[in-house]
Each structure stands twice: as structure tokens, then as C-alpha cells.
């Protein structure tokens, strides 16, 4: 069962950089629910071809429920969600969102939080920092971006006694040394990563080299699903065949024909949309299923069938 959507008005749009816009969303008919730092919402985008649902981190102050703020980077290779937001959505427009859910919460047991952001990955940490500064929680932020392109919020990030800020502008050749960041940390340190896949991998690798167990690492891995090849899917129980287009996900194709599956992240991490399949080749793109389950189940929010065989789902 998916929670009922919330109607919001886009009350303000601000261009932060040539490729990043901030959207302020205000509730129409009811108060906005409270949220914790690291939470995201799903935004429904009625693009001309179909309705997309994209997940965005909330960056606004969790203590302020008069509005939610998100920031969206225009993605060149995207399936149209970010382009729609950048080019079609206007102040005063009405949109639908899901209530916030959190798959990237700070650990209550950590004594020092190391936040590592790449580009638009700064967004969840904006909410983290607001809360950590208010509560006096020890943290440090490392933020890599490209000056003049993805430098959103750089000026707003003021260092504090309990929260240092280090920025790295690639235009100026400033490089983040993950090894230096992780070395010499206290035993109570845990690290949070949000940014491109290669940043995540680099931190994971360095942490492993230094002997940090995985439990010290937290990451926000989801992104809008990547496009792929078109493929066919057959629903065994309903005896129905659907075509999934190159730039839509299997989950979206199912939803378009009124088959609603539970889902939270739409990015292959939460495990909600797990669906059994009976035959066919699957391109697994999620971060959830253990390899042992991959021969029986898939995550339709990101994973796809191969283009030359029909995928048969147990639905």
C-alpha cells in the first residue's frame, strides 16, 4: 500500500547555478509532515509522454514545516524528469509528492559525522548540517564541485566550531584526498557519502584499505533510473504482455497499466518493490538483492529485461 500523495504548490524557483535550480514546495490542503535529516520525497512529474516519479532529498530545515525545499540538477542523460523541472515547471504550478521517507539517516551512535558530497549530492547534507549545528553535534563536511557549474550553496556553508567545512573546486584544481580525510579520525567517526558513483567507490575503497568495516559507511546511492534498451515483459498470472520503452523503468511501465507495486526509493536500495520472475534474462541494477536471490527476483524500479528475450514476471 503506497501512502496517499500530498498536493503542493511550487512557490518559488531559484537558479543556483547554470545547471541547478532550487524548488520551494508549499502544501495546499494540509500541513506538511515532519521529517528527519536525510529524508527524501518522490515528486510526480507529468511529462508529455508519461508521468515520472523521481526521488529528491529534502534540503530544508527539518524544524520548518512551512515548506520543503529540493534542488535539481539538469541531467543531460536523464529520461526527462530534470529537464521537465528545469524547463516546464513554473512558480505557482501544482505538483504531487509522497510523504518523506528516510533511507539515509545519520547514526545516533556516531560521535563524529564525516559528510562527503559531490556536486548535487550536497542536498541531504544541507538538512544534516542545519540539525547538527542546532544540536551541537560534531561533524565535518567535504564538498567537491565544479566552480561556475555545480557550486550550489558554497557561500551558505559557514564553518562552525562543531562543524568544519572544506570545499574542493575542480576548476581550480583542488582535489579531495579521501585518505587524508579518513586518516586520524577518532573511533566514534562514521562517514556519509552522497554524490556520483565514482566518489562512492573511491571512499569505499579507501575505507576498506584503512580497515574500516562497512558499518562505518553510509551512502545515498539512489538516482533516477538510467535508461536502457526497450524490452518485453509478460505477466504470467494476468496473462498480459507489456512493452517497456528505452527511457522508462519496468516499475513505471507496470504502473502505467495500473499495476501498483510498493516502492519507496525508486532507486534500487529500499527493497520495497521486489518482484519474483519466472524466466527471462535480467540486467540487475539494484543495490539490494543478494546475488543468491537474483535468479528468482528483481527490483523493477531500476532493473530491466534484456532486449532480445521476454521477461516473465510472477504477477
Amino acid at each position: 500500500m503506497s501512502p496517499s500523495p500530498i498536493q503542493v504548490t511550487v512557490s518559488r524557483i531559484e537558479s543556483l547555478t547554470p545547471v541547478i535550480k532550487e524548488f520551494t514546495l508549499t502544501a495546499q490542503d494540509r500541513a506538511l509532515p515532519g521529517f528527519s535529516p536525510g529524508s527524501h520525497i518522490q515528486l510526480q512529474l507529468p511529462t508529455p509522454s508519461r508521468t515520472l516519479k523521481n526521488a529528491y532529498s529534502l534540503l530544508s530545515d527539518p524544524a520548518d514545516l512551512s515548506c520543503y525545499r529540493i534542488a535539481v540538477r539538469l541531467q543531460e542523460s536523464s529520461r526527462g524528469g530534470s529537464r521537465y523541472l528545469h524547463e516546464r515547471v513554473r512558480e505557482g504550478d501544482h505538483l504531487q509528492i509522497t510523504p518523506p521517507a528516510n533511507l539515509f539517516a545519520p547514526s545516533s551512535r556516531a560521535q563524529h559525522h564525516i559528510l562527503i558530497a559531490g556536486g548535487i549530492g550536497i542536498t541531504p547534507f544541507m538538512a544534516y548540517r542545519t540539525e547538527m549545528l542546532r544540536q551541537g553535534i560534531s561533524h565535518e563536511l567535504h564538498y567537491a564541485y565544479t566552480g561556475g557549474l555545480t557550486h550550489a550553496y558554497v557561500e551558505a556553508l559557514q564553518p562552525a566550531p562543531n562543524g568544519q567545512v572544506t570545499t574542493y573546486d575542480s576548476r581550480r584544481g583542488e582535489r579531495m584526498s579521501i585518505e587524508q580525510i579518513l586518516s586520524g579520525q577518532p573511533l566514534g567517526a562514521q562517514v556519509y557519502i552522497c554524490g556520483p558513483e565514482r566518489l562512492l567507490q573511491a571512499v569505499q575503497q579507501t575505507a576498506a584499505d584503512l580497515g574500516w568495516p562497512e558499518a562505518r559507511l553510509h551512502w545515498e546511492a539512489f538516482a533516477a533510473p538510467e535508461p536502457g534498451q526497450p524490452f518485453q515483459v509478460h505477466l504470467a498470472r494476468q496473462d498480459k504482455t507489456l512493452a517497456v520503452g528505452a527511457d522508462e523503468s519496468l516499475l513505471e511501465a507496470l504502473e502505467a497499466s495500473e499495476i501498483d507495486l510498493p516502492n519507496l526509493c525508486r532507486g534500487g536500495v529500499c527493497g520495497q518493490c521486489v518482484t519474483p520472475y519466472l524466466s527471462g534474462q535480467v540486467e540487475h541494477r539494484d543495490n539490494y538483492l543478494p546475488p543468491s536471490d537474483q535468479s528468482r527476483a528483481l527490483m523493477p524500479c531500476v532493473s530491466r529485461g534484456a532486449c532480445n528475450s521476454t521477461l516473465v514476471l510472477d504477477l
Binding site: 521529517f35 518523506p100 521517507a101 519507496l264 527493497g271
Partner: peptide, 11 residues
């Protein structure tokens, strides 16, 4: 446990 961890605000 899986079910409970996915409980969302207001639900």
C-alpha cells in the same frame, strides 16, 4: 522487522 523499519511518517 522489515515491515516495521519501512513505517513512514503519518502512516
Amino acid at each position: 522487522l522489515k515491515y516495521l523499519m519501512n513505517i513512514q511518517v503519518d502512516h
